[in-house]
Amino acid sequence: MSTFRLGLVPGVNPDRWLRVWGERVTDVPLLVVPVAAAQAEAALRAGELEAALLRLPVDRDGLDAIPLYTEASVVVVRKDHLFTAADEVALEDFADETLVVPGDDVLGWADPPGERFAGPVPTTSDAVDLVAAGHAVLVLPHSLARLHLRKGLTTQPVPDAPGSTVALAWPTDAYDELTEELIGIVRGRTANSSRGSRAQQPARAPERRPQPQPARKRRRR
């Protein structure tokens, strides 16, 4: 394999894992492939990626995944919005608000609070435009909010909003030693871990051979 292709959805920062890969796997470069959150699963199934850092849920039929962390959500509002007067916001506070849920939403709302924005909003970027214009508020995972934040907007924590779980996923039938190495890296295994066939093994100490003893001089009687 000339490269190991790792899909990366918006908002996920893999820098520390890329650095460790470069230190441990010197013969196979790790190629980061940006992919939309909604397209990551399809790219894995099509063989376009060896693995992906994506957001759950995914269909586990033919794919394996390990959750890495769950990201808290925040509300994106204008800096003059009344939500900025509090340290955090509860979902019940959205009762009189218009909430925009874009077509590429990753939170999977079961029952969005407040009044739903009626028009079509294909992307998160489009939703942020509506927030900036004062037409709605938007709830996003914290990293996505930072990615899309612009002048005049701010964020507030929403502790009881759905979170977004980031996971490492790969095709079940494509699992190999490089996949195992990446799993070990994102799980924080050391280079000398027994898991993974590419793990470095400690060098064996050289065997000590007995040294010849100098001949003793015989004393004359």
Score class of each variant (00 low, 15 high):
residue 114 G to E: 04
residue 200 Q to T: 13
residue 208 R to W: 07
residue 176 D to K: 01
residue 12 V to Q: 06
residue 22 G to N: 09
residue 99 L to Y: 08
residue 2 S to A: 11
residue 119 G to W: 10
residue 198 R to F: 11
residue 126 D to F: 01
residue 144 L to K: 04
residue 118 A to L: 14
residue 124 T to M: 00
residue 149 L to G: 03
residue 94 F to D: 05
residue 9 V to F: 08
residue 185 I to W: 01
residue 92 E to L: 13
residue 46 A to G: 09
residue 11 G to I: 06
residue 41 E to G: 09
residue 160 D to H: 10
residue 181 E to H: 13
residue 2 S to E: 15
residue 113 P to D: 10
residue 207 E to C: 10
residue 120 P to Y: 12
residue 150 R to M: 05
residue 116 R to K: 12
residue 151 K to F: 08
residue 105 D to E: 13
residue 12 V to I: 13
residue 124 T to C: 02
residue 95 A to K: 15
residue 15 D to P: 00
residue 75 V to L: 10
residue 8 L to E: 07
residue 139 V to P: 07
residue 7 G to R: 02
residue 180 E to F: 06
residue 207 E to A: 14
residue 141 P to H: 01
residue 5 R to I: 04
residue 55 R to T: 09
residue 146 R to V: 11
residue 59 D to Y: 06
residue 186 V to F: 03
residue 160 D to G: 11
residue 64 D to N: 01
residue 183 I to N: 02
residue 32 V to R: 05
residue 68 L to A: 04
residue 7 G to A: 05
residue 110 A to C: 00
residue 185 I to G: 04
residue 213 Q to W: 13
residue 140 L to F: 02
residue 13 N to R: 04
residue 111 D to V: 12
residue 19 R to T: 15
residue 147 L to A: 13
residue 137 V to K: 07
residue 146 R to D: 13
residue 133 A to M: 12
residue 190 T to P: 03
residue 61 D to L: 08
residue 135 H to E: 15
